[in-house]
């Protein structure tokens, strides 16, 4: 009996079950509030992502919808915000995510109404390496995506971006930079056919 590992670890197992249960409870009770915070943050970002940061304070009506995209036999859902100003569509903001170096990266991507030009990029959530990868959230780096055309896939380069579809990698964080680019590319190729003709 003494050598039975499972019996020796009864306290560990019991505590794990107990802690797991209480964490599930915490998650259940707090997640509506956390999601509400995230949605509010998203909505506040919409004007700047569509109109540019100089016009971030202008009032914009926001209609939110979920769009399903069939991909490799699976359905992928995107949360899409349609920004309307003075009765005219000003652009789209797409909430999207993908795997980064450390954990999931959540992005907000602003695109022009006809889906041809990127108008803004914002990092909602990331857990990349502090000091290196987490610089994907720096405004200066994100600014590179603004005004990029969506007809060609964006590419990360380490030697200084020259071509119009090139993005400079962050020194020491090539994987994080590539992850952001890949998320943007995937999102655009998924949603372009769906959204480009809508307005």
């Amino acid at each position: 009996m003494k050598n039975n590992y499972i019996l020796q670890a009864w306290l560990v197992l019991l505590l794990a079950v107990f802690y797991g249960g209480s964490l599930a409870g915490v998650q259940l009770s707090l997640s509506p509030k956390i999601n509400e915070n995230k949605i509010n943050e998203t909505r506040q970002r919409v004007p700047a992502l569509v109109l540019g940061k100089d016009r971030a304070n202008e009032p914009v009506e926001i209609e939110s919808e979920n769009i399903a995209v069939e991909k490799n036999g699976r359905k992928v859902f995107y949360n899409v915000f349609k920004a309307v100003q003075d009765g005219k569509q000003a652009g789209w903001v797409i909430k999207t995510s993908g795997q980064g170096y450390g954990d999931k990266i959540e992005l907000l991507l602003g695109v022009s109404p006809d889906m041809s030009i990127i108008t803004g990029l914002f990092v909602l959530d990331q857990k990349e390496t502090p000091g290196l990868g987490n610089r994907i959230a720096d405004p200066a780096w994100r600014q590179q995506f603004v005004h990029k055309k969506t007809d060609k896939k964006l590419v990360v380069v380490k030697t200084g971006a020259k071509a119009p579809n090139e993005i400079d990698a962050i020194t020491g964080a090539t994987i994080s930079s590539r992850s952001v680019c890949a998320i943007v590319n995937n999102t655009l190729s998924d949603l372009k056919p769906k959204l480009a003709g809508v307005n």
Binding site: V12, A16, Y19, V26, S31, I34
Partner: peptide, 17 residues
């Protein structure tokens, strides 16, 4: 295990409030 549990609670609490 104990520390991780309470840290997760703090993390969720901060994200909520």
């Amino acid at each position: 295990l104990t520390i991780a549990t309470f840290v997760t609670i703090v993390d969720r609490f901060l994200a909520a409030y």
